[in-house]
Design a protein around this nucleic acid. Sequence first.
DNA 1: CCTTCCAAG
DNA 2: CTTGTAAGG
Lengths: 267, 267
Amino acid sequence: MLTVTSVNVNGIRAAAKKGFVPWLAGSDADVVCLQEVRAEEAQIPDEARVPEGWHTVFAPAAAKGRAGVAVYTRREPERVRVGFGSEEFDTSGRYLEVDLPGVTVASLYLPSGEAGTEKQDEKYRFMGEFLTYLEGLRERAAAEGREVVVCGDWNICHREADLKNWKTNRKNAGFLPEERAWLGEVYDRAGYVDVVRALHPDTEGPYSWWSYRGRAFDNDAGWRIDLQVATPGLAARAVKAFVERAETHPERWSDHAPVTVVYEAGV
Amino acid sequence: MLTVTSVNVNGIRAAAKKGFVPWLAGSDADVVCLQEVRAEEAQIPDEARVPEGWHTVFAPAAAKGRAGVAVYTRREPERVRVGFGSEEFDTSGRYLEVDLPGVTVASLYLPSGEAGTEKQDEKYRFMGEFLTYLEGLRERAAAEGREVVVCGDWNICHREADLKNWKTNRKNAGFLPEERAWLGEVYDRAGYVDVVRALHPDTEGPYSWWSYRGRAFDNDAGWRIDLQVATPGLAARAVKAFVERAETHPERWSDHAPVTVVYEAGV
DNA sequence: CCTTCCAAG
DNA sequence: CTTGTAAGG
């Protein structure tokens, strides 16, 4: 049994003031992947940086207050790798991998982009390099007999069922045709599986992000952009998946909600 | 009878959320001079911008979110003047004058400075130009038979009794020998009177500003930098002066407290 | 320590 | 609308 949670904390310092720490203390997960930590390790309060019972590794961005990913594990990782071999992105606080027995777990924070701007070009550059990396990762993992799951904020919805207002967002970053096609490549060409969608093929959402603007959260006008993208062998072991909307964290300590998957032990 | 209050609000938008509006509603003053408004008029909520029963005039700074002075009066002013004829400072949101029958009331926000930096040079430039202006103002007012009071945050303490920690602040902006000497010139050469000190010659303070850092307020480690500097004829009419420390505005909607003087009617 | 700004999301 | 940063105080 392996329980993995992914959550974009939107600033761990702000989240720590609003309920992240008790949420983590109550979590049953074996691994928690964080995105948008937005702090250097030294700036994070102890309760969040070295919580009782967890090993934590951080990959902050070179730019202060930006991006930053982390992985919290109950057992110490066998190995830790920062970045994915990209000159442009390895110091941008967007990718971190840890090896646990038989499985590699990654925390990814893909650039959010903005249609028609240089930020979108950057997102496309990241996507290009990262897809190549994912293919190699799957091959290496297969050769070693290990599974992989890339958790994180992918900042892309694949299908209409993945966001409430898909019609009005067809020209917005996160649901552009090129982005959707790319995510299709991650599944069809690189051979990964969107675990939550595989378990819930016919549901709207479940959304994991709601804008702070307007009444997005109250209207459940959300996006399913926080994904667990796994190798088929691991995906086949997924027995349960859920998103913690307001019910379980009513304090709303982030604009994203935690996405959890329970993976069975053997095959 | 003329009651005049001066207060540095440290951002009128923040102050308005913390109690400035009810404080104003409960004020007995005829004139209230504000400093550090830190907003353009359009950004100020109505309750603070056009409060019931007041006429308000604003002199914002060209730089957004900086400085800014205002004068609130119960009767409409006869005339309003922004700045004091300085090319460098007239758009800096630091000086505003209104003429009321027989008396000119000004709201001043003197640069705070920082010892040994360009900011201190700017403060000295302001002080130089402003002293010249004050001399001319007193002469013109005398010729017209009018009195003058320049209310505001002067950002200088004249004497040791004007700040709690005078020993440790002798090399800090606000209590530098040159600044203290300059305030002496305002009194001795330009002929103005520090009204609150004239009424309370032998008291420590009363302080009107306490840093937000550390426990300055709780320890009453304050500075008396918010002054009413008047022509001798008006100063002679002052019958009462007080600073509203925590007692009367426990919400602490600014790091400064209002300084009020009651001036008798005739001479 | 607090209030603005701005960029980013 | 919220998070950081930075400057200013």
